[in-house]
Amino acid sequence: MAAGGGIDPIHQFHINPIVELKPFGVDLSFTNTSLWMVIVLAVVSAIMIYGSSQRSVVPGRLQSLAEMAYEFVASTMTGVMGKDGLKFFPFVFSLFMFVLASNLLGLLPGSFTVTSQIIVTAALALLVISIVVIYGVVKHGTHFFGLFVPSGVPGWLLPFMVLIEAVSFLSRPVSLSLRLFGNMLAGHIALKVFGGFVVVLLGSGAALNYAIAPLPLLLAVALTALEVLVAVLQAYVFAILTCVYLNDALHPGH
C-alpha cells in the first residue's frame, strides 16, 4: 500500500531529521521525534509552571489542572508506597506527565507519537529499573536481594522460586516498555488502517463502495475515543507500575 499514495500505516512512525547533527560521527540529528519531545516538554511545563504562576488560593482553570495532576500523582504514590515514597515524587510525576503528554499529543492529526518508539519506552523503563536496583542496593545492601527469596517456601523449592523471581524481576523493564510501546503502536496503526479504508473506498469509484465508506469512518471515530482512553490509561499504568517497583526498593521485606 506504500506505493498507493500515502496510506501506508507505518509511514507515521518514520523518523525524519529536521536539523542534521553528527558530532564525532554519531547521528544526533534533531528529528521529528526530538521535536515532539520538545513540544511535550513545552506543553507540560506550560501547564505546570505557567498554570501555577498565579499562586492563587482559589485556583483558575489551568491551576486546577496543574493541582489535579499534582494531587493525583501524589495520592497514587502514597497509596502504593506510603508517605516515604514521596521522595521519588518529582521523578514519578515527570515520568507520568511525559508519557501522558506524549500519548495524548500523539493523537493529534499530523503529530508524532514519541512513545511509539521502542527505544524511548525502553529507555524510560530502564531508567525506572536502574533507580529501583541502585536505590535498593544503596539503601538496603544485600537485604534488597531478599526480594528474590519469598518467605515460607520449603527449602527444596527455593532455588526454583529464586529463579522464577529473578526472571520476573528481569522481565519488568521489558514488559514495562513493551506494554506502552505496543499500545501506542497498535492503536495508531489501527486508526491509520481504518482511515485508509475510507480513502480506498472513496477512491475506487464504485457506487456500493461510496455507500459503505462511512462505516470505517465511524469505526475510526470510535477508535479515536478508545485511543484517548488508552493514552491516559497507559500513562497511569506506567506510573503505577513504577510506584510498585519503587516500593520494592523502599520496602524489600514485603
Binding site: V26, S29, V38, L41, S45
Partner: peptide, 21 residues
C-alpha cells in the same frame, strides 16, 4: 535513530525533571 532518540530524550526528560522538581 536510537542514538538521536536517546540523546534528545535524555535532554528533554532531564529538562522536564529539572523544571518539575
Amino acid at each position: 535513530h536510537f542514538a538521536s532518540n536517546l540523546f534528545w530524550l535524555a535532554i528533554t526528560f532531564a529538562a522536564l525533571y529539572w523544571l518539575m522538581s
